[in-house]
Computed example of a mutant assay.
Amino acid sequence: MATRQRRTPQAAKFAILDAAERRLHDEGPEGVRIQRIAADLGMTDAAIHYHFGTREALMDALLRRIGRRLVDDIATTIESWAPDEIDVAALSRLFQRAYADERAARLAVWLSLAGWRPKGSGMFMPLVERVHRARIEAARKAKRPTPRLSDTQYAIALLSAAHMQAAMAGDALLASVAEDSKGLDNRDFLSFSVESIARRLAE
């Protein structure tokens, strides 16, 4: 058990989220438990309940933290693009890190089973807008018709969904399409998805 420390309320919340994220990374959502985090930080269970209320509320805050980090990473990435550039592979790496490496996909499923519902806050709207501007610029240069916004929205939603599904149940998904899925690989599935989406966005 860690030695107890005095922390400001804000520092305590950050420390709790840091500890919860470490547990999430090492053990998945099942490892994010109030008692374990309290022991990690030298806090009482009551102190964690004071800051977050319930385990579900802590998990929700953790998912939102990972989501904000993904949005910030996307913003940094798209700032470097040329006006008509869309680097779907770079976006894929960011979704992979958030959904698989940081366990956001499994955390979202856990919360969903606990009754949580996303509020549909449009977290990827800046990405959609930037990608669509690039599509419009590329179409203008090539003298093609203006692309539809809905196609851009569907493409970004599909990119997100492919990475989330691969992180949650990629092996099971691939097993559903073959008697023997040994020749199928999650990485190849994501590469196929990225290439397909990139081709559609280039239209």
Rank of each mutant, 00 (worst) to 15 (best):
A2Y: 02
T3V: 15
T3R: 11
R4V: 00
Q5V: 00
Q5M: 09
R7F: 02
R7N: 04
A11M: 10
K13A: 11
F14L: 13
F14Y: 11
A15R: 03
A15M: 07
I16S: 00
I16T: 04
I16M: 07
D18C: 07
A19N: 01
A19G: 10
A20L: 04
A20Q: 08
E21M: 05
R22I: 12
R22H: 14
R23I: 14
R23F: 14
H25Y: 10
H25Q: 13
G28F: 00
P29C: 04
E30Y: 06
V32D: 00
V32N: 00
R33M: 04
I34E: 13
Q35P: 05
R36A: 12
A39S: 05
A39C: 04
D40T: 08
M43Q: 14
D45A: 06
H51I: 01
F52M: 07
F52G: 03
F52A: 01
G53L: 02
R55H: 12
A57N: 11
D60L: 11
A61K: 04
A61N: 00
L63D: 01
R64T: 13
R65D: 02
I66P: 00
L70V: 03
V71R: 09
D72V: 02
D72T: 02
D73G: 05
I74L: 03
I74M: 01
A75P: 03
T76D: 14
T77G: 05
T77C: 07
I78K: 04
W81N: 00
W81M: 00
A82D: 14
A82N: 15
P83N: 07
P83M: 08
I86W: 05
I86Y: 08
L91F: 04
R93Y: 15
F95M: 14
Q96P: 06
Q96N: 14
Q96W: 12
D101R: 10
E102I: 04
R103G: 14
A104N: 13
A105R: 05
R106V: 08
A108W: 09
V109K: 14
S112Y: 13
A114M: 08
A114D: 03
W116S: 09
W116M: 06
W116Y: 12
R117K: 11
R117I: 09
S121M: 08
M123P: 11
F124R: 03
M125F: 13
P126K: 01
P126R: 02
L127F: 00
R130Q: 06
V131E: 03
H132K: 03
H132Q: 07
H132I: 11
H132M: 02
I136A: 06
E137L: 13
A142P: 05
K143Y: 09
R144A: 15
R148L: 08
L149H: 12
L149M: 13
S150I: 15
S150G: 08
D151Y: 11
D151T: 11
T152W: 06
Y154W: 15
I156A: 08
L158Q: 13
L159T: 01
H163F: 05
H163K: 09
Q165L: 15
A166K: 07
A167R: 07
M168S: 14
G170D: 06
D171H: 09
D171E: 15
L173S: 10
A175Y: 12
A175R: 11
S176Y: 09
A178H: 13
A178K: 10
D180K: 05
S181L: 03
K182Q: 08
G183Y: 02
D185S: 12
D185M: 09
F189Y: 09
F192Y: 11
V194L: 12
I197K: 01
R199Q: 13
L201C: 01
A202I: 04
E203S: 05
